[in-house]
């Protein structure tokens, strides 16, 4: 018997009450330990996709299965499902009335009824791993954006999810803080964490993803390897999109649009090696 994929989406369609179709005919799978990056223009439906997988937005048709079990449809025990699917938001969304430790413990203690001492040991170990061991008693407002986002990531990890959804987790950060957050994600990928990542950091997507899904206007326009996507995109829309991240070469230097170097918005350094991360230098 084959192992079912951690996530399987089939013909997912999501329509907002105002009639706007956010997602249409979305089908893909995420295998265990696979890292899939979802990219695409603003408003293309990427974030909605993650919110649907987590049940924060209802879908109108199609199915989403977690570990082979369908989680869409009536009677889904979302409280159980969401423990298996961690979600990290763009704006961290830590609980401001709780300390860092309180944020980390809320889920395990209230949802999983874990023993406090054990959960605390686990929380402190995770904090130590992301370099925040000394901030356990601080409140979120005392942390920088990058620190908050690292706390948000390990808050999701506290529940020991099967898959982690990351929704533009660096989009609200100052450039110099992006790296510290992405390093944590890279490390998780190295340990075999299954992840579905929505991002605008193209060089990051290229470095971390096993597969790129390009969504345009609510549909999957392209689904391929990072290498293929960033060097030879198959669709015109993907080429146009990637060009947004490339800057015009100075006079005298000519590059063809299709082979344009992929760069992050803030960076002027080109990425020559697909495995190197050259963010914001």
């Amino acid at each position: 018997m084959t192992v079912p994929p951690v996530l399987r989406l089939e013909a997912v369609r999501q329509q907002y009450p105002n009639g706007l179709v956010a997602l249409d005919r979305i089908s893909f799978e995420v295998a265990k330990s696979e890292v899939v990056a979802v990219v695409g223009p603003s408003g293309c439906g990427k974030s909605t996709l993650l919110r649907c997988v987590n049940g924060l937005e209802p879908i109108q048709s199609g199915t989403i299965a977690l570990d082979g079990a369908i989680i869409t449809g009536p009677g889904t025990a979302w409280s159980k499902v969401r423990q298996q699917i961690g979600l990290v938001f763009q704006n961290y969304e830590l609980f401001p009335h709780l300390t860092v430790l309180g944020n980390l413990l809320l889920g395990p203690l209230k949802v999983q009824r874990a023993a406090k001492a054990e959960a605390q040991v686990k929380a402190l170990a995770l904090l130590d791993r992301v370099g925040l061991a000394d901030r356990a008693r601080d409140y979120p407002r005392q942390l920088s954006g990058g620190q908050k986002q690292r706390v948000a990531i390990i808050r999701a990890l506290m529940m020991e999810p099967q898959v982690l959804l990351l929704d533009e987790i660096t989009a609200s950060l100052d450039p110099e803080m992006v790296r510290e957050v992405l390093d944590v994600v890279l490390e998780l990928a190295g340990e075999g964490m299954t992840m579905l990542i929505v991002t605008h950091e193209m060089s990051f997507a290229r470095a971390i993803a096993d597969r790129i899904i390009f969504i345009d206007a609510g549909r999957i326009a392209e689904q391929t390897t990072p290498e293929q996507f960033f060097t030879a995109p198959q669709t015109e829309r993907a080429r146009q999109f990637l060009n947004l991240f490339a800057f015009a070469p100075p006079p005298g230097h000519h590059e063809t649009a299709g082979a344009a170097a992929v760069q992050t918005e803030e960076s002027s350094a080109t990425t020559s090696d697909s495995n190197s991360l050259e963010l914001h230098e």
């Binding site: 924060l56 979302w78 423990q83 961690g86 938001f89 889920g107």
Partner: peptide, 15 residues
């Protein structure tokens, strides 16, 4: 988003 981030951890509405 506070509701959503709490729900994403698996907290039930009353929690």
């Amino acid at each position: 988003h506070q509701y959503q981030s709490a729900a994403a951890l698996g907290l039930r509405p009353t929690q």
